[in-house]
Simulated assay, not measured.
Amino acid sequence: MGETVLGISPESLYILGKKPQSLEEIHKPHFLAFPPSDRDVEVERKKLVDAWKRNEETPLKHITDIGEVEEFRSFWDFEKKVKGFRIYAKRSFLVPEISDYLFFNHNLYTAEHDIPYHQRALIDFAASDRAWVFDTEGKKKNLKVLVYDIETTEFEEGKTDLPIDILGYTSIDIAVESEKNLDTEEFSFEIKDWPSNWIDGEIIQLIARSKDEEIDTLLKFCKLVEQHSIISGHNIVGFDNRQMHGRIEKIVSE
């Protein structure tokens, strides 16, 4: 691929040095469908295609394409092979609804419908050698790491749009080198450069005493995020990220 994937979410793929890419623009959400063993897979596929093309108000309307018949190895008996086909959905969150409809209304078994979408995409990217998280292909890559923390004096359980009173952060430059060899199943990941005295790195605090100052702080934070490769901090997934996102969303909507 030649590019270093830093992370993935159900919505976006994060590549070093690039803006987040919409995951569904480069990967099609899908799952697998199989008929019972006493039924012909080609016949069952044609029945489903005909039903889909009727454009009725059923979950089939969420399908974008129905793949050709393929042979898959059984999940529970790897030596056994079964024939099935892929069902492609408009959006990843529509997969379970379509899957249930096929099972109860078209007598089709389904598989891989309950895999979290970002994991589904990562598996497909890795299988096709398109992307592997943090694989620098043996080259040294420089990363900027932002470590931040927030404080709010009006904390209320369950609310994620409260004023952000203090934003504290520091920036760290590191370099990593990694590579994989799928033939030998060997993987390596090394941090090549790291600040020798990172504990003494400058910690910047932005204090908001008014809403205007808070907006300035949030704008500064957004610019910092764009300038860094990795965003880190204590419990930021469970708290800080949610609060920052919720507060920015509320201010923008006002």
Rank of each mutant, 00 (worst) to 15 (best):
G2W: 00
G2R: 08
T4Y: 03
V5Y: 06
I8K: 05
S9R: 10
S9D: 15
L13H: 01
Y14N: 04
I15H: 00
L16S: 08
G17H: 04
K18M: 11
K19E: 15
S22P: 07
H27V: 08
H27T: 11
F31M: 03
F31N: 03
A33W: 02
P35T: 10
V41Q: 02
V41K: 02
E42Y: 13
E42F: 15
E44G: 01
K46Q: 15
K46I: 11
L48V: 03
L48R: 06
L48F: 04
D50H: 07
A51S: 07
K53F: 07
K53L: 15
R54E: 15
E56A: 09
E57Q: 13
L60Y: 03
L60P: 00
K61V: 13
H62M: 13
H62K: 10
D65K: 15
D65W: 12
G67F: 08
E68I: 13
V69W: 06
E70D: 08
E71W: 00
F75D: 11
F75K: 14
K80P: 00
V82S: 00
F85C: 05
A89D: 01
R91P: 08
S92N: 15
Y101D: 02
F103S: 10
F104E: 13
N105E: 12
H106E: 02
L108M: 09
P116Y: 08
Y117C: 00
Y117G: 01
A121I: 04
L122K: 08
I123F: 13
I123Y: 14
A127M: 12
S128G: 07
D129W: 06
D129L: 11
R130N: 11
R130H: 12
R130G: 12
A131F: 10
W132C: 08
V133G: 05
D135P: 04
T136F: 08
G138M: 05
K140Q: 15
K141N: 12
N142W: 12
L143H: 14
K144D: 11
K144W: 08
V145Y: 06
L146P: 01
L146Q: 07
D149R: 02
E151S: 04
T153H: 13
E154N: 13
E157G: 05
G158A: 06
G158E: 10
D161F: 07
I166E: 11
S171N: 12
I172Q: 05
I174K: 09
A175N: 04
E177P: 01
S178E: 02
S178C: 09
E179G: 09
T184F: 02
E185D: 10
E186F: 01
F187N: 01
S188R: 12
E190Q: 11
E190F: 02
W194A: 12
P195Q: 07
E202W: 06
E202N: 13
I204E: 10
L206K: 12
A208D: 07
R209T: 09
E213K: 11
E213Q: 14
I215W: 02
I215F: 04
D216F: 05
K220W: 02
K220Y: 05
C222P: 03
L224R: 01
E226W: 05
H228I: 06
N235T: 08
N235L: 14
V237S: 15
V237Y: 15
G238R: 12
D240R: 04
Q243L: 10
H245G: 06
I248V: 11
E249Q: 13
K250L: 14
I251F: 05
I251D: 06
S253Y: 11
